[in-house]
Design a protein around this nucleic acid. Structure first.
Lengths: 292, 292
DNA sequence: CCCACTCTCTGACTAAAGTCAGAGAATGGA
DNA sequence: TCCATTCTCTGACTTTAGTCAGAGAGTGGG
């Protein structure tokens, strides 16, 4: 099956059959941009900065859209107490009602779309869309380098440690984690979904890179995000001047071990005194092709 | 799995990750509407009327868009020799080049999107999208009543007869087909994809409806379009005052027979002298719930 | 050869969407 | 306490998209 041809064919179908419908459905009474904004603010409110990023709007334009919703009594915009340069938009009671109406309409549209299908076909459609959703999200998410003290990185590290504590039979105590190294992070809707880092070892292994804290959110597994993270960490290690990387892991993390093996890692003897480590791997980077 | 929630979740992902990207990709140099139009005209050209339907544009607006493309030397608009009220847009050499560039860009976008995925994941994505594409198209296609002498209906009947001729061991000769009855037709991009009709029987079976020429294009099978056609034909038969429908079929058409049985049809003895018929079915419509 | 109808085009608009430069308040480190 | 930086807002625009009411050419059936 030709992937790009299928994708392009689907794009066509989607634009014509769903996209157009959605616009006509949601843009009633209010311009579409204003509806989208209202929907995006949502019952929990949202920062102006965040809205700008999520919707890709010019700051002046967003200000005006917000003022308009404010004028209609749907939204209030206040300074963020934590940082008074930032502003936060929240829905008023009327705004909440309008939001609910949009949500209902969106649900109705979805209902109407699947109405001609039988139950079995709906299940098939839902499965196909869930798969496509996961893969598209995993393919389009950006891995970015973060400072060790970035709050999102700390959040990700916390989630990583929590998972180890859950999965290791004897629990897991990170002690006083040192944050040495360079870390990559992928976030979605402000929450970390994948995380990992490289640091340089010292002593006998001086010059060798160690891959640390590889973690992918459970909801995002099965779409190759772990493998992608590993590839990008290897590329990062190369940029940092390492031509060999090592890592340690625990026997409970079977999927991770399988992934390392698929990625060309070979088991080696213990190289550190990590009490939780039960398996050690290495990979020679020097002859590898440069990644795209 | 909750179908509408999955669908809505996918919509979100799609709009953010693909839709936005596509707009920024295709709308370079030219407004997006003009690009879309140029792309839609395509190397083979297209009638203005057809473009209006496909893109959902106001006729005045389309005229102006075309004039603009004409002014840029990309498109020529001439009267259709067959009906000089109609006009036909064709690409000039420069227009063809611009079209090719759009096509390349669209392909590049698709490539880029799937680039982070492994081959296995690409196959999974392509399969999921192909399934979703078929189901969405089948769910959103409109079945419309057509006059028996509608050229699209004649086209569909021709395709139906051709398939019978291919599948029946001894071939099939429609003889001089009578066009009595009311027919439903679904078309996509101007070509018939599903077809079928109801006519009233006479003689002993006066008052009974007969379902005729049920046909679904091969590329559209497996998405319940046949079952939907059958349901709508039954609804049509009810509206025409029949509380019982019958139909005949050939033993070679095993999928059709399975579908009739799933839809509640029961085998009955031969009720007509159709030489190609090998099985006869009936369904009582009176107590059935009205379809949506 | 009428006449109702189809199809496209023109003129005259309006609304929505987006852009850009720069002002002003607030913040966080040096 | 500076000062560079971040964030939002304002003013002054342009472009894109879309709407609506007719005019005028062409068509097909009676």
């Amino acid at each position: 099956m030709d992937t790009t041809a299928t994708l392009r064919g689907f794009n066509r179908t989607y634009t014509q059959r769903i996209g157009a419908l959605e616009e006509s459905f949601l843009g009633t009474g209010r311009p579409l941009g204003a509806s989208r904004l209202l929907f995006e603010i949502g019952p929990d409110g949202a920062g102006v900065r965040e809205l700008r990023d999520r919707l890709g709007l010019d700051s002046g334009y967003l200000t005006r859209l917000l003022r308009r919703l404010d004028g209609d009594g749907l939204v209030r915009v206040d300074a963020d107490p934590a940082d008074r340069r930032r502003r936060v938009a929240t829905l008023t009671t009327a705004g909440l009602r309008a939001w609910q109406e949009l949500d209902d309409r969106s649900e109705e549209l979805a209902q109407r779309l699947v109405a001609p299908l039988t139950e079995r076909q709906r299940v098939r459609l839902a499965e196909a869309l869930a798969t496509a959703d996961l893969l598209v999200r995993a393919a389009t998410i950006q891995l970015r380098e973060v400072a060790p003290d970035d709050p999102a990185a700390a959040d990700a590290a916390g989630r990583y440690f929590a998972e180890l504590a859950r999965r290791f039979p004897g629990g897991f105590d990170p002690g006083d984690p040192d944050h040495a190294g360079t870390f990559l992070l992928a976030t979605s809707a402000g929450r970390p979904v994948a995380y990992g880092g490289v640091r340089e070892l010292d002593g006998d292994l001086r010059g060798v890179g160690e891959i640390k804290r590889m973690w992918v959110d459970e909801a995002w597994r099965g779409a190759g995000l772990g493998a992608r993270m590993l590839r990008e960490l290897e590329a990062l290690a190369r940029r940092l001047g390492h031509d060999r990387v090592v890592l340690d892991t625990n026997g409970t993390l079977t999927e991770a071990i399988a992934m390392y093996e698929r990625a060309g890692y070979r088991a080696i003897p213990r190289y550190n005194d990590n009490p939780y480590a039960e398996a050690w791997f290495e990979k020679d980077l020097s002859p590898g092709p440069r990644p795209a």
